[in-house]
Design a binder for these strands. Structure first.
Length: 740
DNA sequence: GAGCACTGC
């Protein structure tokens, strides 16, 4: 008996899914078209069923079916469910692949994976020769990797030679999305067929409030307002759990405190149609919360108790809580925006988009009809909320992505088919940075170093430092540091002042233990101390270190080490010797990747960045260099944090001589010249002309003193001061509301 | 003198 008939005969609930009646037509549509857009809201069954239909229809005869997801858990859980439905062992016919966890085999025909994994696969096999069907799921979420995949798949078919290279059967591409902007998707893919499948969710009625209007974008009054609304719902609505959307940990904790206070003072004994609600169970939920505490959220509440979860956006897509009937929407979210004018990422509280508001509301209609209470006015909805969230590709630093594209042979990264084009200056900034890191040459072609760099799942600067260390034979110094910098924050700083003091003291102890006033060295020391400890989790607890984060740093370090080993086994891996002072080795390696993040002491405690923006920055108080006056004139830093000031974090003192030869590179390239190079293959003659012109333009040697002075004159760009001003305003409001 | 959401390789 063939496998497919075995599955066909299996009568289960999948036959009752909305997608089931469209099975034949859907399979035919995939057969007849190269591109197909499938839309359907949650509950349509498209993610679990379509791959099975295609399998049964024989699409796996020549190749695999690959389905991408933006999140790891989704890839894993969906694969588990499909394996169960197909009655096969997970990892055989049906499997999944995510970072650190490859559950596939030679036989795997239906493979769920994260979008990042497929992107990595394309790097090794640009024609995706192993696949007969590629399905991109959750495309409406517009994750960076999914957007890039979408462009790459479109591009494959604009070049028929590439599309058929290495394969004897056609590649089919299915793009799955919620019913948003489907016309745009179809148009992008050459007006391809759109197949709509009805969803299976329950209606959610939405009401607007009166608390937050268009003028209140800067207000923090919404914390109080959501609390009031939650209590209203609790005392006047039928049984069913509440989910409140706020923006961050501290707000959530404040809201929970207020809820406890107020809930005790009201009479919440209430009867509605025999369903008695006697109490309220208040649960915070945010990403950095310990995992076991997060698990509590999923427990059904005790009888006659109503659950009220106060969460960040983590509850919008990543975690699904059963039994939610009421949503309270603050209308705000914390969003990381890259600003190319100042070369900084700024985390800001902004109004959500209308589509995001609908997504939040939808969380109330998964098991029965629900209600969504928006605390903002209809006017706020109309005037302050954008239609759609700006896709990640338009608000993030593109350095790593552009390198990936270049390595895939996409020379013209400006005219690459983006569903939504990033601003040109974002692309130019990325090119400039890649040039500064020697990942591409002046003609925009990937260098040998760039080819090595693309293999690492790290920021290119950090990768460059790792590669430098590897060529000097001291990778053991850099690999742990790179791993520690690419996981969640390692040092825990609790909310209570007493515990804060204790944690700070421990952290200062760890910094001193590392022997040098250097935050990177502290990270290395923490990594090594914990690794050699008998009971690492206990050690972490004692030292206020985030054990979950450190564990993932261990995995990252192992992965980086494996990648490096693989690259070193190839023939021409660079080897260098170091004739300086051994104690400087770590810092010297860091300089090769962080010379774009150099700051020089200006006046007093103020430092000035040397990246061409000349931003005024302060050392963050969590740094071991905070308040260290002596001899500290030049530093490199890992990142920037804009709050009440512009702070640099994870800092390390350096000597000017170490970056002297690298710094001119920061001012060498005119991005607009680079843009013309980016657009087209340039002939040798043109290149020579261009280089001559550049050389003529290049100014005579300028001393760094002059550069600094010039830069200090310029204020930080408006966006940074705006962000600071908004931050200060919020802070002031918080203090006022506390005083009241 | 400290106020950072979420996701991914």
């Amino acid at each position: 008996m063939s496998k497919s008939t075995r599955w066909e005969s299996k009568d289960n609930e999948s036959k009752h899914l909305p997608i089931y009646q469209h099975k034949t037509k859907l399979v035919q549509a995939v057969r007849d078209n190269t591109f197909l857009v499938v839309t359907g809201e949650t509950g349509s069954g498209k993610t679990t069923q379509l791959p099975q239909y295609l399998y049964q229809a024989g699409f796996c005869k020549d190749g695999k079916i690959g389905i991408t997801q933006p999140r790891r858990v989704a890839a894993i859980t969906v694969a588990q469910r499909v394996a169960q439905e197909m009655q096969c062992t997970l990892g055989r016919d049906v499997g999944y692949q995510v970072r650190f966890d490859d559950c596939t085999s030679q036989d795997t025909a239906v493979k769920y994976m994260t979008d990042g994994c497929l992107l990595r696969e394309i790097l090794a096999d640009p024609g995706l020769s192993q696949y007969s069907v590629v399905i991109l799921d959750e495309v409406h979420e517009r994750s960076l990797n999914t957007d890039i995949l979408l462009g790459l798949l479109k591009k494959i078919f604009t070049n028929p030679a590439k599309a058929t290279k290495g394969r004897s059967f056609p590649l089919k591409v299915v793009v799955m999305s919620a019913t948003l902007e489907t016309d745009k998707l179809s148009a992008f893919l050459g007006d391809c067929l759109v197949f709509a499948i009805p969803g299976r969710t329950f209606p959610v009625t939405c009401t607007f409030g009166s608390a937050v209007g268009p003028k209140d974008i800067e207000s923090t009054g919404y914390v109080k307002e959501v609390v009031k609304m939650a209590l209203d719902v609790h005392t006047s609505e039928m049984a069913g759990d509440i989910l409140v959307f706020l923006t961050g940990q501290s707000e959530i904790e404040r809201a929970c405190d207020l809820l406890y206070e107020k809930a005790e003072s009201i009479d919440y004994r209430y009867d509605v149609q025999d369903q008695t609600v006697e109490g309220l169970l208040i649960l915070p939920l945010y990403g950095s919360m310990p995992t076991d505490q997060q698990r509590q959220i999923f427990q059904p509440p005790p009888p006659k108790i109503r659950k009220c979860v106060v969460a960040t956006n983590i509850a919008a897509t990543s975690l699904t809580i059963n039994g939610i009937k009421y949503i309270i929407d603050s209308g705000f979210v914390k969003q990381l925006n890259h600003n190319s004018r100042v070369g900084m990422d700024i985390l800001e509280v902004v109004p959500i988009s209308k589509s995001e508001a609908q997504q939040r509301a939808g969380r109330a209609g998964r098991t029965s009809a629900g209600k969504c209470f928006r605390i903002y006015t209809k006017e706020f909805w109309e005037k302050s909320m954008p239609e759609y969230t700006v896709p990640e590709i338009q608000r993030t630093s593109l350095t790593a992505v552009i390198l990936t594209l270049k390595c895939l042979g996409v020379h013209d990264v400006i005219r690459f088919p983006y569903l939504d084009c990033p601003e040109e200056r974002f692309i130019l900034e990325a090119l400039k940075q890649l040039y500064q890191f020697d990942a591409i040459d002046r003609r925009g072609r990937v260098t040998r170093l760039g080819e090595l760099m693309v293999e690492f799942p790290l920021h290119p600067g950090l990768t460059r430092a790792v590669l430098k260390a590897a060529s000097l034979g001291c990778q053991d110094l850099l690999l742990p540091v790179a791993a520690m910098l690419s996981v969640e924050n390692i040092l825990i700083r609790p909310g209570h002042p007493e515990k804060q003091k204790e944690a700070d003291k421990k952290h200062r102890g760890l910094a001193n233990k590392s022997g040098s006033m250097n935050d990177f060295a502290t990270l290395l020391s923490v990594f090594q101390s914990c690794k050699s400890s008998d009971r690492p989790s206990v050690w972490c607890k004692e030292n206020w270190i985030h054990w979950r984060a450190l564990k993932s740093a261990f995995s990252v370090e192992t992965q980086l080490r494996e990648i490096l080993l693989r690259l070193q086994q190839k023939r021409d891996f660079p080897v260098e010797t170091f004739d300086g002072n051994k104690s400087e080795l770590l810092r010297r390696c860091l300089c090769t990747g962080y010379f774009t993040n150099v700051a020089r002491r200006s006046v007093g405690k103020v430092f000035c960045t040397m990246d061409g923006h000349g931003s005024m920055v302060h050392i963050h108080p969590s740094s071991s260099l905070f308040d260290q006056e002596a001899e500290l004139n030049w530093v490199i830093f890992h990142d920037v944090l804009v709050t009440s000031r512009v702070y640099i974090r994870t800092v390390c003192p350096i000597r000017y001589e170490w970056v002297k030869d690298l710094l001119p590179k920061l001012h060498e390239v005119d991005v607009y010249e680079l843009s013309s190079v980016a657009r087209e293959e340039v002939t040798d003659e043109e290149m020579i002309k261009w280089e001559n012109r550049e050389a003529a333009k290049r100014q005579p040697e300028v001393s760094t003193e002059d550069v600094t002075k010039k830069l200090e004159k310029r204020n930080n760009e408006a966006t940074v001061s705006d962000a600071r001003a908004r931050y200060l305003q919020r802070k002031q409001q918080r203090q006022q509301s506390k005083a009241l």
